[in-house]
Design a protein around this nucleic acid. Structure first.
Length: 568
RNA sequence: UGGGGCGUAGCCAAGCGGUAAGGCAACGGACUUUGGCUCCGUCAUCCGGAGGUUCGAAUCCUCCCGCCCCAGCCA
């Protein structure tokens, strides 16, 4: 990682309590976890929570955490996704050494274990169709009925299963099912499927298999094979735990403890791979790493840091109630880290020309500007100043409310590190648009210092010398959705209807101070008074700079205006 | 209406029978050459509700209410 952020002290949570108890009683001697993504999409901030939980537990308990691709469904998985996942986990700062595992590497072992269950008489080949299986399963209020194939002999099951694997039967014509209890109140225990026939090319095993294990049959056994002690997953798998335990007990193998926690929900966005995929495939965003996406790669491109995400994962905690974390908490984590690390620089996003009428036309001065007031070691730089400048359009108002203490006719403000200036004249075009401000400066305020007469100003503005400015494209982002919880819009309304039409605003002619010419892709800066910005890692080029606004600075003025108190 | 979970402030979240941590947000104020940062202060007489046990309950018991998950050959 870029700097030496101390690892936050582990805070107590119910999972640590369980682990402490296991260690105390000797149920387990060590802690071995795993992060098990399915390579069918990109990782998002919810996965980051899980990654920090699993790798963090391993780190704090001096144990191990594996990376395992939970790849049991060839239809949606790909190497592209697996590679993207690995890159994201690494970027977050974690390392799995040589423990890069794939459920698909366990296919043979899983097959052999299925044979063991058949021999025990607790698994059978079923010829029911999809619809029949559904019908026989019953409902939550009605017990299911046994499949007519439930009592086939061990020999017949062995033969049929071998032939399923050999490719003798068409896709979907047969399944291998565990023989448990068709009347169980837990639907998962009504003879769950272990294998389905699916002639689908797998991104790793190719065409070696035409039968694929289901999640329930693969997951616990994979955990067991890897020596995992604590198999941490999200709440929706809580009802699967009895099945997880059943398979392991039947096999009599190493038996990890499954523990469920609440997945992360973040306000004003969606956090499900299905929905994110829909945004990507529908062209509603530019891709998985669109800076508006809540994906790890999107946040990375936006300018978020691994340290900020780590801190976020820590402060949100781990519990069992479904909740939605407010986006401002994540933004606070980002600002907190960037405030300490991002160099300050001046950039004008929406330029308004200022001419200092009493400043010589050919004169150029250089002012010493602090790179980061939070870090003396960051030093300073020289910024050129001349007669014609750019200032932020929002920093001038012809008829300002009482609390506006930036520039207006007749008022004086400080240009950061430069001089006090006073606005003498407002120049407008034929249409009445303000096109230029004519001001005068006070030589006694050189460097931005207060003059000997004790005069003070209430505002300090950032600026860029017009003839020294470099141009850049700046992308300003808002929330992707306009509502707090897009996934729960009213019945009949498309969740995508709540997309924020103003989630992206592209500013083409921003004016930057010369120092930014050397900004390398993915470098992060604070544009003073505007926010934190990151040179786009895909599109920013040396003479065609592109910056993404990571997050704005906290802004008292905007708060006053939005709450109608700018005149009070 | 079967089963499995969960309900502590606007949002997260500690708390595990001894009298409601912390963070975010918000609101005051100090400081300020970023209306940034930092600092100080305010913010649950109360823990979904009602009973009960106890000297004492957010914590234990009973009943009720609300929300989430399970009827994919997805994970």
């Amino acid at each position: 990682m870029a700097d030496e952020t101390p690892i936050p002290k582990p805070r107590s949570n119910f999972i640590r309590d369980i682990i402490d108890e296991h260690l105390r009683t000797g149920r387990f001697a060590t802690v071995h976890t795993r992060f098990p993504p399915e390579p069918n999409g990109y990782l998002h901030i919810g996965h980051a929570k899980s990654i920090h939980l699993n790798f963090g537990l391993a780190r704090d308990y001096k144990g191990l955490c594996n990376l395992r691709m939970d790849d049991t469904n060839p239809e949606t998985e790909s190497m592209e996704y697996a590679n993207a996942i690995k890159e994201d986990v690494r970027w977050l700062g974690f390392d799995w050494d040589d423990r890069e595992y794939y459920a698909s590497d366990y296919y043979q072992q899983l097959y052999d274990w299925a044979v063991v269950l058949i021999r025990k008489g607790v698994a059978y080949v079923c010829d029911l169709t999809v619809d029949q299986v559904r019908e026989y399963r019953g409902t939550v209020n009605k017990a299911g009925r046994p499949s007519p194939y439930r009592d086939r002999s061990v020999e017949e099951n062995l033969d049929l299963f071998a032939r399923m694997r050999a490719g003798e039967f068409p896709d979907g014509s047969k399944t291998l099912r565990a023989k448990i209890d068709m009347a169980s109140p837990n639907m998962l225990l009504r003879d769950p499927l272990m294998y389905r026939i699916r002639r689908e090319h797998h991104y790793r095993t190719g065409d070696a298999w035409c039968i694929y294990p289901t999640y329930d049959w693969a997951h616990g056994q994979s955990d067991s094979i890897e020596g995992v002690t604590h198999s941490i997953c999200t709440l929706e798998f809580e009802v699967h735990r009895p099945l997880y335990d059943w398979y392991l007990d039947q096999l009599g193998v190493h038996h990890p403890q499954q523990i469920e926690f609440a997945r992360l929900n973040l306000s004003h966005t969606v956090l499900s791979k299905r929905r994110l995929l829909e945004l990507v495939e529908g062209g509603l965003v530019s891709g998985w790493d669109d800076p508006r996406m809540p994906t790890i790669s999107g946040f990375r491109r936006r300018g978020f840091t691994p340290e900020a995400i780590a801190n976020f994962a820590d402060v949100i905690g781990v519990a069992k109630d479904n909740s939605i974390v407010d986006l401002p908490l994540l933004e606070m984590c980002v600002r907190e880290h960037l405030n300490r690390t991002a160099p300050r620089v001046m950039a004008v996003l929406r330029p308004l020309k200022v001419v200092i009428t009493n400043y010589p036309e050919d004169r150029v001065e250089e002012f010493d500007c602090v790179n980061n007031p939070e870090n003396a070691a960051a030093g300073s730089r020289q910024v050129p100043f001349a007669r014609e400048l750019w200032i932020e359009r929002d920093d001038f108002m012809e008829n300002p409310p009482s609390k506006f203490y930036r520039l207006s006719p007749g008022k004086e403000v400080r240009l950061r590190y430069a001089y006090f200036i006073k606005c003498d004249e407002v120049v407008k075009d034929a249409a009445g648009n303000i096109v230029e401000l004519r001001c005068t400066y006070d030589p006694a305020t050189r460097g931005g210092d207060n003059p000997p007469d004790g005069r003070k100003v209430k505002a300090t503005l950032h600026w860029v010398s017009a003839r020294h400015a470099i141009d850049a494209e700046v992308r300003l982002y808002g929330t992707l959705f306009t509502v707090r919880d897009p996934a729960s819009v009213a019945e009949g309304i498309d969740w995508k209807a709540t997309l924020n039409p103003k989630s992206l605003e592209v500013v083409k002619d921003a004016k930057l101070e010369p120092a930014l010419a050397s900004a390398v892709p993915e470098s992060r800066w604070q544009f003073e008074r505007m926010g934190y910005f990151c040179a786009d890692r895909r599109n920013s080029k040396p003479r065609a700079l592109v910056f993404n606004r990571t997050v704005t600075l906290r802004d008292e003025w905007t708060r006053l205006v939005s709450s109608g108190r700018e005149n009070k």
